[in-house]
């Protein structure tokens, strides 16, 4: 079968099944289980309305619990066990964690990840803020924003290819086709550098890719926040004699601090999950390993589920402060 046909067929089945579920389950509830006719009509309707929310929620709840909630628990369990031949497993306590902590590669990944956690959100937010502020002041700002925002649509893998070209290295006697080396030589470098092997610069060059992608996101959100600042506060500051920089840092930035925090944490989460860029560009060689790629290595190359799961739990541990904070805020809002 032609792949396009197969695609269309599967799409129809998948989507149709979904629509069918909602339609027929509602019909079933109203016509068969609690018919809204006859002597008990009133009571039946009330009962049907008590069941209906769960009908609407069921597929979502099922998917959420199977695909997100259960794995958290199961990963925790796996991280405390060891696989034995024949599909059996054995409880080993914290042995996996101990083994992981003793591995140099893990320490490298953890340290790198911490570095990523500082550098990427900081630069993305700073550049995003800069772009937002600049583009709100010129007439072609929307075009500028759209172009800076564009990398958001590009896959990490695509971005990896794009940047590999930038970082490309040719032998010294040939013309450089990578922009970075061309610039380096232009500004007086003596020999082209194989950037991907230069410790520690290579890690920063990988981070640059993510900063390049995330800046647009930060810019869009911060630009909306900047525009939400009451104009009067800015005018008051100008009348008080503040210069543009003072207006920006003393009046505007404090007022959008909460948005900056949101942007920062959102990018933090992205960073913790970053996998594709490292996987595609260096695959963790030359001391560029990060947790997500380390975990992938353990799970699918070394086939070590115990240590792999343990490292996944480390990622979970790192996001949980954000998780708790979000839930806390959401609950507060619902009051």
């Amino acid at each position: 079968m032609h792949p396009a046909f197969q695609a269309i067929l599967t799409i129809i089945i998948g989507v149709g099944g979904c629509v069918g579920y909602f339609y027929f389950s509602n019909q079933f509830l109203d016509k068969v289980v609690f018919p809204s006719r006859g002597p008990n009509a009133g009571r039946n309707i009330t009962r049907a309305n008590m069941v209906r929310p769960w009908l609407f929620l069921f597929p979502a709840l099922a998917a959420l619990s199977i695909y997100l909630a259960y794995p958290v628990v199961e990963t925790l369990r796996l991280s405390l066990t060891e696989r034995l031949p024949g599909n059996r497993s054995q409880f080993v306590g914290f042995a996996n964690y101990q083994q992981m902590l003793s591995e140099a590669k893990f320490k490298e990944a953890l340290l790198n990840n911490l570095l990523w956690l500082v550098v990427v959100p900081a630069f993305s937010t700073a550049f995003g803020l800069l772009a937002a502020q600049l583009s709100d002041r010129v007439r072609w700002g929307n075009i500028a924003k759209s172009l800076i925002f564009m990398p958001m649509a590009i896959s990490f893998v695509g971005a990896a290819v794009i940047w590999k070209l930038v970082y490309d290295t040719r032998p010294i006697d040939q013309e450089q086709i990578g922009a970075l080396n061309a610039l380096y030589l232009f500004f007086g470098g003596d020999a082209p550098v194989t950037w991907m092997t230069q410790i520690p610069w290579n890690s920063f060059l990988l981070m640059a890719v993510l900063v390049w992608i995330q800046t647009g996101f930060a810019m869009v959100i911060l630009s909306a926040a900047l525009r939400g600042i009451p104009e009067e506060t800015i005018e008051a500051a100008i009348v008080d004699g503040a210069n543009p920089f003072q207006v920006f840092f003393k009046i505007k930035v404090p007022q959008i601090m909460s948005t900056i925090v949101v942007v920062w944490t959102t990018i933090t989460i992205v960073v913790l999950k970053v996998f594709d860029i490292v996987f595609a560009m260096t695959n963790g060689q030359w001391e560029t390993q990060v947790l997500a790629n380390y975990m992938y290595d353990k799970l699918f190359r070394a086939n070590d589920w115990g240590v792999g799961s343990a490292s996944a739990m480390v990622i979970m541990l790192l996001v949980s402060p954000i998780l708790i904070w979000n839930v806390y805020n959401a609950r507060k809002e619902m009051q």
Binding site: S36, A41, G42, R43, I45, T46, N49
Partner: peptide, 10 residues
């Protein structure tokens, strides 16, 4: 007719 349990439509 008692309406307490009737949904609006009815």
């Amino acid at each position: 007719a008692r309406m307490n349990e009737m949904p609006p439509a009815q």
